[in-house]
Amino acid sequence: MEFVNVQELVSTGVAEALAFYFIAALAITLSIGVISDKNVIRAGFLLIGVFGGISGLFFLLQAQFIALAQVMIYAVGITLVVVIALMLTNPRLQNEEAEEEAIASSEPALLKFLDSIRNGFPGLVAWIAFVTVYMAIRSEHWEQSTQTIGEDNIAVIGRALTTDYSLPFEFASVLLLAALIGAIMLAKAEKVEDTDTPREGIESGSN
């Protein structure tokens, strides 16, 4: 293979395939790390790496906008907030888990069996989800478009969001707003109770 310039080398199928396998391997390795790492904060940071890998895959598909949104919103925005929330949680959680295990080992056999079913349940769900997605990807005859990707695919996305898909877009934003308000209400609920009880007492006293 002889190349005259770098553009040619980068745009060959081999280079693209190599980049894909590298990024995919990285993302898979990191996601295995996320579920196997005992330290939950480390797992959070690994998850940021996973999202970075997925954004790389979007870059390979020439979907620059989605790739960058992936980095900005998922990798940095959401995951970082989750990691910070984890940092503020109780570090003794791990010890409690160990205690639970110690209790479980002293249980009778039947309970142990039921427990193992209960513990295996998330794994089962995960397997079913995986098999479903895998079957969906493999069975369906995916249409292969020969259309080339335009230079300004951001403009295309923007136009689609504000014309053809404006209703789903609005639905999504209303759903997010509802979730936001709900979260604030949930977070506020405790405080209101705390301050209300003495206030009632004062009020009844004045009456």
Binding site: Q64, L68, V71, M72, A75
Partner: peptide, 25 residues
Amino acid sequence: NLPTGIFYILAAASIPVVALVMAGW
């Protein structure tokens, strides 16, 4: 040069925060 220019720069500029939290932790 990229067609997503300024958005790319902003996305790149948002990454260092991760490093600060990581360094702190």
